[in-house]
């Protein structure tokens, strides 16, 4: 069934047109009732066409289109993952130093029977919530809250699950003043010293240091159409060509897709999305994320803190080295 509230991306126009046509025919049928011509066959044909085109389109998204899908406003957000994957979730707020940053939300909960600490970026889904969550761009307090919760995970021997979706850490005067760099560096360091398993999944955008601060994990997963990069494609384009409009070229050149990152051995696994992207079937996408996280987590359960740290260390040190002789 086509959804009139759906946000179509520019490159999805052929699909949008087909879906509009289907809707129109359905409207005609509903109005005319039994007296009108039977449009059922026609509608079925169009549905098939729409579905085929969607599948074909998403099977070969270029890096820029993936960037657009990764940023899609209807893509499942942190609150959706928490709602469906984390039972008895209790949000824990504040860095105990300055304030609470809603760009990073974390707390305690149960993931498929295990007690866990969860952390992630929340971008918000409408004007009001986007402002509240600062579009998922964390300030130092967000990273310091993350450090605090990782300390707690260590203390109570709880695994840490993180959901990464940020265009990057917030570039502002206050953030700089309160040590944005130090906060990110310490958060990354805290991930690496953690004696309990940590599993991260990039669900949308993995933007630079703001992402790595929550993703220096034992296993790093990515949704099929998510991106992970050292700088936003726009930022890269504005530096290289002094023209942020060339973001498409930058996305291609930087190899930001999950498929590229798996090949470069930067991530451990790709989680396939439902046809047409996670936003077309959020429940299914979330379930798949949960399945892969559970599988990854099980690989580290039963290991000692020393082994867990050592495995994480080896994981990161081998990145890039494997490409030297390959």
């Amino acid at each position: 069934m086509s959804d009139p509230t759906r946000t179509y991306l520019d490159f999805e126009r052929p699909i949008a047109e087909l879906d509009a046509k289907i809707e129109e025919l359905e409207g005609v049928m509903a109005r005319n009732g039994e007296d009108g011509p039977d449009l059922g066959d026609e509608i079925a044909k169009l549905r098939q066409k729409s579905s085929d085109q969607l599948q074909a389109l998403y099977a070969k998204l270029d890096p820029w289109r993936k960037t657009l899908v990764a940023r899609h406003p209807e893509r499942p957000h942190l609150k959706d993952y928490y709602k469906h994957l984390i039972e008895d979730f209790e949000e824990l707020c504040g860095d105990r130093r300055f304030s609470n940053d809603d760009a990073i939300i974390g707390g305690l909960g149960r993931f498929r029977g295990r007690s866990v600490v969860v952390l992630g970026h929340e971008k918000g889904h409408d004007v009001q919530t986007r402002i509240k969550h600062n579009f998922g761009m964390a300030r130092p307090e967000g990273y310091r809250k993350a450090i605090r919760l990782m300390d707690m995970a260590e203390q109570y021997d709880l695994p840490v699950l993180t959901f990464v979706d940020t265009s990057g850490a917030y570039p502002g005067i206050g953030a700089e003043e309160r040590g944005q760099s130090e906060a990110i560096a310490r958060s990354t360091e805290r991930c690496l010293t953690l004696g309990t398993p940590m599993i991260s999944v990039v669900t949308g955008e993995g933007g630079s240091g703001g992402a790595i601060a929550l993703a220096a994990a034992n296993a790093v997963l990515m949704l099929e159409h998510s991106i992970y990069s050292v700088i936003s494609p726009e930022g890269c384009a504005s530096i290289l060509w002094r023209d942020s409009a060339r973001a498409k070229d930058a996305a291609t050149a930087m190899k930001v897709s999950a498929q590229d990152l798996l090949q470069l051995k930067i991530i451990d696994a790709i989680i396939p999305e439902p046809v047409g992207g996670a936003h077309r079937n959020p429940q299914e996408a979330i379930r798949r994320v949960g399945d892969q996280m559970e599988q990854s987590l099980s690989q580290f359960e039963g290991l000692s803190p020393v082994q867990i740290r050592q495995r994480r260390r080896e994981r990161f040190l081998s990145i890039g080295r494997s490409l030297l002789n390959g």
């Binding site: 220096a216 050292v230 290289l240």
Partner: peptide, 16 residues
């Protein structure tokens, strides 16, 4: 930037 996410990975790597 010319090394993409491989350069990003130097943040945790140097920290190690």
């Amino acid at each position: 930037m010319q090394e993409g996410a491989l350069s990003l990975m130097q943040m945790p790597r140097t920290t190690l």
